[in-house]
């Protein structure tokens, strides 16, 4: 038997459970209750409430991604400099939190950030007034960064670890100081890692609804929350599908825009 046929079960699976569901949601998005064709569901993303939620989600996702990049690079650089020689160890530390239930971990942040929580207790000890950040977009941002940071650190760390020490030494040899080594060698060479990090952070941050649900205290509506409610509360599946497809298209466009920018910048940021 030819080896390529070994993929047959996988291909059947992909068609049955990836492609067909996507077609189904697409059809659902473009029909109404009577089964007639309509653009309405897709265009409802432009309704004021939905549009506001979409833009707010975009802002949160962008902020979260940028913060993750800023936190991940120093961490990845330091991990590299430790020369643990054990990539497995870094991965372990980043993956391990996933084994504590995700919703419980977000609930823990709610407790930490609450007016009488651990954070305010510590700040009170330092003599400062209590911070009112629970149930706000700040709490949502902290929760999002917390949940998605490992998905930025891991690919960035992998990319940075893959850079040959010789390449860095060559740059030093040619007169580059620490700063020049970072901007002209490490950053451009780790760009692919950063891009996969961006995808792994931006998409879930943009579309999650659980974090906003718990840490936003019901006051914050991301586009994910609206879609979820269309299915669980309003029972308006066609509208929900329409919003989902619009969201998917929007995310794809944002990603394509980031990629294109990155590729275009490649020539200019290096020098």
């Amino acid at each position: 038997m030819k080896r390529k046929y070994w993929a047959a079960p996988y291909l059947v699976w992909v068609v049955g459970f990836v492609v067909l569901p996507l077609i189904t949601i697409g059809v659902s998005a473009m029909t109404d209750d009577q089964g007639h064709f309509t653009w309405e569901n897709l265009l409802s993303i432009g309704d004021p409430i939905n549009r506001q939620a979409l833009l707010f989600s975009l802002a949160i996702a962008l902020g979260c991604t940028v913060i993750c990049i800023l936190l991940a690079y120093p961490a990845a650089m330091i991990l590299r400099s430790l020369r643990l020689n054990k990539r497995g160890f870094a991965i372990l530390i980043m993956i391990l939190p996933m084994w504590m239930n995700f919703i419980l971990r977000i609930l823990a942040w709610q407790m930490i950030l609450s007016p009488n929580g651990v954070l305010n207790f510590l700040i009170g000890k330092l003599g400062a007034g209590p911070l009112q950040i629970s149930n706000s977009w700040i709490a949502l941002m902290i929760g999002s960064v917390y949940d998605f940071l490992p998905f930025m650190i891991l690919p960035v760390f992998n990319a940075i670890s893959d850079i040959d020490e010789d390449t860095i030494e060559a740059a030093r040899d040619l007169g580059a100081n620490d700063r020049a080594v970072f901007w002209k060698v490490i950053l451009p060479l780790s760009a692919p890692g950063m891009i996969s990090g961006i995808i792994m952070v931006f998409v879930p941050a943009m579309t999650s609804f659980v974090i906003a649900d718990i840490l936003g205290g019901g006051k914050i509506q991301l586009i994910g929350n609206i879609i979820e409610q269309e299915f669980t509360k309003s029972m308006n599946w066609h509208a929900g599908s329409g919003l989902s497809i619009s969201l998917m298209i929007f995310v794809l466009i944002s990603l394509a825009f980031t990629m294109k920018n990155d590729l275009k910048d490649k020539g200019t940021t290096i020098w």
Partner: peptide, 30 residues
């Protein structure tokens, strides 16, 4: 003294060219 502060240059065994730059950019680096 750090390597970048010395007027000494090295040709490495594994060449160690910068993979993200073309020939011209490599030579122009220093």
């Amino acid at each position: 003294l750090a390597p970048d502060k010395r007027n000494i240059n090295t040709v490495f065994q594994k060449y160690s060219l910068f993979p993200h730059m073309n020939v011209e950019e490599n030579i122009a680096f220093g």
